[in-house]
Every structure is written in C-alpha cells, then in structure tokens.
Simulated assay, not measured.
Amino acid sequence: MLPFRQVDVFSAVPWLGNPLAVVHDTDGLSDQQMADFARWTNLSETTFLSAPTDPKADYRVRIWTTSGELPFAGHPTIGSAHAWLEAGGTPQGEAVIQECGAGLVTVRRSPRLGFAAPPLTRSGEVDADLRARIVTALAVDECAIVDLAWADNGPGWVGVDLGTAQAVIDVVPDIAAFADLKVAVLGRWDNAHVAEFGADVEVRAFYADGRNFGEDPVTGSANAALAQWLIGTGALPDTYVARQGSVIGRDGRVHIEAADGEVWVSGDAVTRIKGSVDH
C-alpha cells in the first residue's frame, strides 16, 4: 500500500480549485503502473513522488495525464510540493527543489507555494492561418482581439488578450473547430469587480488533441505563459491575481509576481482526500 493524497490546487475553498492525485514512495512502480493509475483517476494529472536522482533536488516527481507523461506542469508542481511537505518532507534549503522531466524547478514556500515559471520555448507572432483558426475556434470577431501571440512554455499555448474579463467569460468556443489547438485567453476586471472577486484578470484555457476538447479548471502553465507574455509587453503589471474556472463551476486564484527577472506563479493547496493505494 502506498500513501495517497488528493490535493485541491489554486483554491483554499473546498472543491473550487483543480484536483491533483499524488502517490508517494513510488520508486518501485513501473511506467505501466503509473499510466494505468493515472488513467483510472481520470483527473487531468496524477503525480508520483520518489527519491531524486539529482543530489540538488529534494524529491523527484513524474507527472502523468490520462494519455501520457508530461515533463512539467504548473498545478502538479504546487500540489506535489504541498503533499511532499505535508507528508514530512524536509527541504535541503529554504525553497523546495523539485526534479521533473524538465529539470530542476524551484518552489518557494512563502507567502504561499509558488514556482518560477520556466522560459517560453516559443513566443512572438502566429501566422495568419493559425490566427484565423483561433478566431474561428473562439467564435469571436477579429476586432475583439487586442493581442494574440505564441506563449508556449511546453504544452503549446497560444495567448489571446480579449481586453475585458467579461469578453473572456462570454466566449462560447466552437468545439469542432478546435482540432489540436491550445489557447489561453485573458481579460481585465474593472475596479468594482477587482474588489468583489479579489482578482484583477479573468483567464480561461481551452485545449484539444484532435479527439477530445476540454476547458481546464485552473492552469499553472497557461497563467505562467500569459504572465511572461503580457508583463513582458507592458500590458499587465508586475503583480496581479488571476481568476479562472468560474464558467465551469470553479473559482481558482493564481497569484502572479514578476521579480528579479523571474515570473512566480503561486497558489493555495489543500489536501481533501488522504489514504493509501493498493498497487
């Protein structure tokens, strides 16, 4: 039996964040066992914690979706660090150092768990054909697009600035047109709604793989990519809070801070289920 936790990430309020399944002490599990369990949980990601192979790291994590393994993802990073610490993990230094497929990731512990966003692997303009596909998939008018660019830190995100938060909420995507797109959209709240929601912007993240389409509840990688893009262009301030998931019954909060040349993505994480897995 292996220790198991299910963690709600990016929300301190029960059931409003993005759930993550975490299995501890998995050094003896095979790839097939990990893949089978991740498929069975049917969550967007399941992580498996084990001893690190790099002496600089505090633990190693492998991140699996229902269809394969990822080198890095945002909410699994925060959720895994939370689970490891809660289970008694003691970092070598002030921050937690996570080893994953993308290398070593620094996770700071205060004021809440947060990771330094990995560099964008692709940025800049998209070609005209792709832009047209995205406009069609989002079912918005071309004139509604404030800005649109590659903001890819691994998963393949294209970022779309729709100006206002209400424009983001009003998006009704054309699911059939999404094909293999991964699109993160963002818009700003006015001052009255900032005070009401405790959030400066609204974010939604849509993804498809040619067969399945989904909207992610709260997305660390997409928020990281949007922040790197829009803080970089001066379109967003160095510090802000994003709300995500409201259209699909969630209410996550992602805290963004650009400092010392890095963009930090932070959020709450709370264990909701704790037990063991018979593998």
Rank of each mutant, 00 (worst) to 15 (best):
G28L: 14
D174C: 07
S67V: 10
A144Q: 13
G17A: 04
R60E: 06
I145L: 12
R243V: 00
A132Q: 10
V263C: 08
G124H: 12
G275E: 13
S221E: 08
D170H: 04
G68H: 11
A139M: 13
V140W: 06
L236G: 05
R131Q: 10
G79T: 10
S44F: 04
V105G: 00
V22G: 03
A21F: 03
D152G: 12
K56H: 11
V7Y: 08
R204F: 02
P111R: 12
V96I: 10
T219L: 08
E125A: 15
L29W: 15
K182N: 12
A117S: 10
D27H: 09
G93C: 07
S110N: 12
P3Y: 01
T77P: 03
S276L: 13
L138A: 05
S266E: 04
D251C: 03
V22P: 02
Q228M: 15
A116H: 05
V135S: 04
T77W: 00
T90P: 00
F206Q: 01
R5K: 15
D31A: 15
E257K: 08
E94R: 15
S123V: 05
G234Q: 14
S110D: 11
I175K: 11
G163Q: 02
L230P: 00
A195P: 02
W64N: 00
A128F: 12
I145C: 02
D27M: 07
P118W: 01
A227I: 07
T47C: 00
P3W: 02
A81V: 14
Y59R: 09
G210P: 01
H193W: 03
R109M: 04
Q166E: 05
Y207A: 13
P118E: 01
R62C: 02
P71T: 09
G267F: 07
Q92A: 13
G68T: 06
F213V: 15
A242V: 03
R250I: 03
K274S: 13
A184R: 01
R133L: 02
E262T: 14
T271H: 09
C143A: 14
L20F: 08
A139T: 04
I134D: 07
D152E: 10
A176V: 14
L104H: 13
G88T: 05
G187S: 02
T47W: 06
V241N: 03
T41R: 10
Q33W: 07
D190R: 09
T47F: 00
T164G: 08
G68M: 07
G275K: 14
A258F: 13
A205L: 03
D8H: 11
G74S: 08
R112K: 14
L29T: 07
Y207M: 11
K182W: 04
A12D: 15
H255C: 04
S44H: 01
T53W: 08
S50C: 03
P71M: 11
V105I: 15
P76C: 06
V265E: 04
D260V: 04
P217S: 14
G103M: 09
A242F: 01
W189Y: 15
A192M: 10
F206T: 06
G267S: 09
S123Y: 05
I63K: 00
A102F: 08
A132D: 13
G187M: 09
R253F: 01
W64D: 01
V203E: 00
A117K: 00
D129W: 07
I78K: 02
W84V: 02
G220F: 05
R109I: 11
A151M: 13
P71L: 08
D129G: 13
I248G: 04
V185Y: 00
A137L: 05
